[in-house]
């Protein structure tokens, strides 16, 4: 057990280190911008005084290292800075209105998490079941149809799936709304209904991936000599699966799930845009278009953190489920 704990702590430390390096990469990337932010924000309207004022506000007169650490410090404590859109508003009109980046992101982050969880709730059980079935009945008609269907679904762009679903489930048969305009104060049921189409779109893509990976994992497992041994001991097929295959399949399946949840993170961006879903992905794309750097930076770090976290989780869970590590010699 000591051993496992050590490995896990190592992985955690490595994950944290990766996140730190990623934050540096993002920070440097953003600082590669020509000129400085102040001119960028004000554009044509820049007067020397307003530029100087923004520079002071943003701390641009300090060194890059100092700025990095104050930015990082802010990220850790939840202060994600001030968005350009808001700064522009303040300096040009002298007002103090608008939201900070944190205020802007928080509700949208919650929405995205809601979308991701609904997707996971549908996709994970579906994909794992179908994947196991495809592995058990491999090379049958079912397996071949599933292979072609999942391959097609993986290959299609998310917006293609999204529009097909809109066409059939919103326009031709008005079952779900095609616009997911979620706002505060909606009941859970209403929210769920509005989230259904984006969730289904993501489900189609993620399920295909997850199912193929589960199938591959189970097939390689079923080919192992100890499964043959169990069969040759006259154990019932059900028990072979539950007792012999499953404990060993857990690690690869958990891995598959975590990896696909990480994949979901990239997937939400396009889907949120298609359905005008007020999530973090939509905010990210909007900010990219108006070059609102602080928001882009913050969103990017959040996406990366979630991605690293999920991959880390996959790693740790598969270590935990490895009997060789759990019971060292």
């Amino acid at each position: 057990m000591q051993n496992v704990l050590k490995i896990i702590l190592q992985r955690l430390a490595l994950g944290l280190l990766t996140l730190l390096v990623v934050s540096i990469v993002i920070f440097i990337a953003v600082n590669l911008l020509p000129g400085d932010f102040a001119e960028l924000i004000l554009g044509q309207a820049a007067t020397p005084e307003s530029v100087a004022s923004i520079r002071r506000d943003l701390g641009l007169d300090q060194s890059m290292v100092t700025r990095y650490f104050s930015w990082l410090g802010g990220m850790v404590t939840g202060d994600l800075g001030t968005s350009f859109a808001q700064l522009n508003f303040q300096t040009n009109l002298g007002g103090t209105g608008g939201k900070t980046v944190a205020e802007q992101i928080a509700p949208r982050f919650a929405n995205t998490m809601f979308l991701a969880s609904v997707t996971a709730m549908i996709a994970v059980p579906l994909a794992v079941t179908l994947g196991i079935l495809a592995a058990l009945y491999r090379n049958t008609v079912f397996d071949r149809v599933a292979n072609i269907a999942t391959l097609s679904s993986i290959s299609s762009p998310e917006f293609f799936m999204a529009y097909i679903l809109i066409l059939f489930l919103a326009v031709l048969n008005p079952i779900f709304p095609s616009l997911s305009n979620i706002y505060e104060g909606m009941t859970f049921g209403e929210k769920l209904e509005k989230t259904m189409l984006p969730a289904l779109t993501l489900t189609l893509v993620v399920t295909a991936h997850m199912m193929r990976m589960t199938r591959a994992a189970i097939i390689s497992l079923l080919a192992s000599p100890y499964i043959e041994m169990a069969r040759l001991k006259g154990i019932s097929p059900m028990r072979v699966i539950v007792k012999h295959a499953l404990p060993n399949a857990l690690a690869p399946i958990i891995n598959v799930i975590a990896l696909n949840l990480a994949y979901l993170i990239t997937g939400v961006v396009v889907v949120e845009v298609v359905f005008v879903y007020p999530g973090i992905g939509q905010l990210f794309v909007d900010s990219v278009k108006i070059r609102d750097i602080p928001v882009v930076q913050a969103c990017c770090l959040i996406f990366a953190a979630a991605y690293i976290l999920l991959n880390l989780m996959a790693d740790i869970l598969s270590i935990l489920s490895n009997p060789r590590l759990r019971h060292p010699k």
């Binding site: 043959e228 040759l232 060993n248």
Partner: peptide, 29 residues
């Protein structure tokens, strides 16, 4: 199978299920 006909494989290391103790696999049949 297992009761009246049994099998001993070439690679014991691969033919024992790594997730269970040897005796649990012994008593299964």
């Amino acid at each position: 199978l297992g009761k009246r006909i049994a099998y001993v494989a070439q690679s014991a290391a691969a033919s024992f299920n790594p997730a269970h103790k040897i005796i649990d696999q012994h008593t299964e049949a």
